[in-house]
Every structure is written in C-alpha cells, then in structure tokens.
Design a protein around this nucleic acid. Structure first.
Ligand SMILES: [Zn+2]
Length: 286
DNA sequence: CAAAAGTCCTGCTTGC
DNA sequence: TGCAAGCAGGACTTTT
C-alpha cells in the first residue's frame, strides 16, 4: 500500500496489533526484504527476538515500530509490500517474506511483498526518528511542515513540478497517483518549470497535495487490486474519486476532454489535455 | 508482453 | 579549472 495515505492506513491498523507485545521469534523467508540490514537475515531475526514493540510511527512512506529499549524496526513497503495479521496456523499467502511471532502465541504479523522493492531493517536508536531516513523530508501531514518554506525550496529548483513533488527529500509521501491528482486539481502540466510558479501558486500546489491525501485517507486509501489492502485485508475506496490516475480515455470531470496517459520518468503520467496544457518552453528552462 | 502505487545508485551537468 | 551539489536515467523484481 504505497503512498502516504495507504502507509498511514497500515500504520494505524498495526498500532493495536503490535503495541505492548513482545517478539519471540522472527523468520525471514526471503533474504531480499532484509538486504539493508547489515547483519543479514539470521542477524535480523536474532536481534529482534525479545523486543517489546510500541505504537508505530510514520514519515512520508516510511514507517517504523519503536521498541521500548529505544531501537526500532524501520520498514518501507516499496511498490507491493503489505502487512497482514493472521493466526499462526493460518495458511501463508503467496509472496510471504517475513513472519513475526509474539510471546502470547496469538495473532501473527506477516510481511508480504510481491516485487520486493520494499524492505526492513533494525534501526539502532531509531525509536524517535531512524537515522537511516534523516534525508527524508517532512510530509504534508507533519505538524512542523511549513508550506512557505517548502514552496521556496521548490521554486529554487531548476527541475519540473511533478519530478519535484515526487522528490522525497523536498516533501515526502507523494507518489505517482497523488502527484497526478494534485496537478489535475491545480490545472498544471507535469513538465511545468518550478521556477515559473509564483510563491502563492507553489503553496497552493502543496496545500492541494495535502487535501488530496487527506480525502484519500478518509476513504481508506486507493486500492486497485488485492495488493493494496490494510492489515485485515480490507481495501480502500479512494479509486472512485480519482480524477485522472488510471482514467485513460475517460472524460475529464471538469471539461469532458478524454484523459491521456503519457510516459514520464519511466512510469505513466495521467492528465487532461483540456485543462493541463503543456507549458511553452520557458526562458528559465533553457 | 507491457505495465504496476518506489527508491537507490551512478554518471552527467551546473554553479560557485 | 576544480569541486560539490543538483539532476536525470536506469536498475532492481514478480506477477497479471
Ligand atoms: Zn479537463
């Protein structure tokens, strides 16, 4: 469940399941999701045993489960990672990668990841904020997030707007879906130069991104298929509110023009050609 | 077979 | 010219 609203749904779902419980055994079924853990699969499993978990936290698309001892389990879901909660004797779903057993022998935590772009590692001293993600910017939901400051940084970049919305060191949590939805709401083309935006306009873009993600979170996030479900397997319903993402050839809700899908940054961008015009080659662009 | 909701690494470009 | 930072493109992976 990859972008900010989906990760937040997972975090919230995990909270009552893991808070206050102590790990007894961790089994790594595939080494790749643990590739960033220096001690490898065996070390990872061994170092986690005996830890007591507290309420999960999140920054952007990263989430971490702090331990009572000050360390933490840092997780990124990548493109297809998910956490599921099942009884220990329930059959494993395909692509199950890591199993977490607790001292009460009750509900088992399972990490499932088809493409394995996601990963997890033990973060020493990472309970408050794992040092491994110190380069990740605040997300628009963070209390200290300052749109004016971020807007100024955004406008100082030579890059273009969608690329910057996806830049997790500038503002975190926004992915391909919510970038496209934000740009549609703001009537901006994804290749608009940052420097061409006024401060007011740049702030508006950031506010819009927060609004779209807030609306999505209220619907439980976006789920196109079974890959994107919460810890109990429930899907979110924001896909019915999407204006452009995944709506190729369907009419724009605003002007009726068919939505187009275009390759950009080795992925797809969706936009309305009627209200999101390709920018004129700007002077700053060169 | 093309495409899928992400991040990291590498090499090229830019600006002091 | 030299260096550091900024920027863009490709790699990584499995499944439908
Ligand atoms: Zn339109």
């Amino acid at each position: 469940m990859p972008e900010l609203p989906e990760v937040e749904v997972i975090r919230a779902g995990l909270a009552p399941v893991v808070s206050g419980r102590t790990l007894t055994r961790v089994r790594v079924l595939h080494p790749r999701p643990v590739r960033y853990h220096p001690a490898g699969p065996q070390g990872f499993a061994a170092e986690l045993a005996g830890r007591t978990l507290t309420e999960p936290r999140r920054r952007g698309k990263y989430l971490w489960i702090p331990f009572e001892d000050g360390d933490a389990l840092l997780v990124h879901l990548g493109m297809s990672g998910q956490f599921r909660v099942d009884m220990p004797d329930a059959p494993l779903r395909p692509n199950t990668r890591v199993l977490f057993d607790f001292d009460d022998d009750s509900r088992q935590l399972r990490f499932i990841d088809q493409r394995m772009f996601g990963g997890m590692q033990l973060s020493a001293g990472g309970a408050e904020l794992p040092p491994q993600i110190s380069h990740i910017a605040l997300d628009p939901f963070a209390p200290d997030f300052d749109p004016e400051t971020v807007a100024r940084r955004l406008r100082a970049k030579r890059s273009t707007i969608k690329r910057s919305l996806l830049d997790q060191t500038l503002v975190s949590g926004i992915g391909n879906i919510y970038a496209d939805e934000t740009l549609w709401r703001c009537r901006l083309h994804y290749e608009q130069r940052n420097a061409s935006l006024s401060q007011r306009r740049a702030v508006e873009v950031l506010s819009t991104a927060r609004e779209v993600m807030t609306a999505s979170l209220a619907q439980g996030g976006t789920s196109f298929d079974a890959l994107y479900v919460d810890v109990d397997g429930a899907a979110g319903y924001f896909s019915r509110n999407l204006a452009v993402y995944g709506r190729q050839d369907q009419p724009c809700d605003r002007c009726g023009t068919p939505i187009v899908r275009e390759p950009f940054m080795n992925r797809s961008s969706y936009r309305c050609p009627g209200c999101q015009h390709r920018p004129r080659r700007s002077l700053v662009a060169q």
